[in-house]
């Protein structure tokens, strides 16, 4: 499974009326074959099979953002799972040392600051991998960029991308196809991932299509 690439559709939910939020979540899951992760940015999350919230709420994974890293005591007092987000040039290694290995920290998401060179990003990922083996490492596509993401997925087979929008899935599939690795639709609910078929390859002989045109394009 480690060589497969996971695509986790993500829905950000702000503060909404519960019926509206429920409807949005329902539609989101329906359109992704019941897979998808919901990130609540509100104190009143709604039920969803795979969800996290940016504040500590029982029953929901705590999504810790770089600006709101609590101290170890607060983290230990929280009765639930944690997913941590950090900039790749300022990883809180000491804090992660306290949490991993352990049951609380479920995944770590790296965000790339604009000035962080690709070589340094590779070093950060390698450092994370060697210092915290087994920790689920995810990488934020919008800040990393597609070129760097393609390279990182090739170099680190255990890495997975996050925040890839639906309309950019074809680019991820293209990377999977080039690396000959399957892409799966997944979330963190425990439901089995669903294999996403690759896009059909382009016609190997595009001239074939031209010959169907009644006028020779050379003389148009």
């Amino acid at each position: 499974m480690s060589a497969d690439i996971l695509w986790v559709p993500c829905l950000k939910m702000d503060s909404h009326d519960p019926p509206y939020a429920d409807r949005m979540i329902r539609l989101f899951l329906l359109s992704h074959q019941e897979r998808g992760h919901v990130l609540f940015q509100t104190e009143t999350p709604r039920p969803a099979p795979s969800c996290s919230a940016i504040m500590p709420i029982p029953g929901c994974t705590w999504h810790i953002t770089p600006g709101t890293v609590p101290d170890l005591a607060t983290l230990n007092a929280f009765d639930g799972f944690i997913e941590m987000t950090a900039p790749s040039d300022d990883i809180p290694f000491d804090l992660v040392d306290q949490l991993w290995p352990g049951p609380k920290l479920t995944r770590f998401i790296l965000i790339r600051p604009a000035h962080h060179r690709l070589a340094n990003l590779v070093n950060s990922i390698e450092k994370m991998r060697s210092r915290f083996p087994g920790l689920g490492l995810w990488i934020d596509q919008p800040t990393v960029g597609w070129d760097a993401l393609a390279y990182l997925l090739a170099v680190f087979p255990g890495l997975h991308p996050v925040r890839i929008q639906d309309d950019e899935l074809d680019r991820l599939l293209n990377i999977g196809q080039k690396l000959e690795r399957e892409v799966f639709l997944a979330d963190f609910s425990g439901l089995p991932p669903i294999k996403i078929p690759f896009l059909p390859r382009y016609a190997p002989d595009p001239a074939r299509h031209w010959r169907r045109v009644p006028i020779n394009p050379r003389f148009v």
Binding site: D147, A150, Y151, A154, N174, L179, Y202, W210
Partner: peptide, 13 residues
């Protein structure tokens, strides 16, 4: 060009 349908080569290529 006539090959617009092919797009650009992938970075890996």
């Amino acid at each position: 060009t006539d090959l617009e349908i092919l797009g650009s080569p992938h970075l890996f290529e």
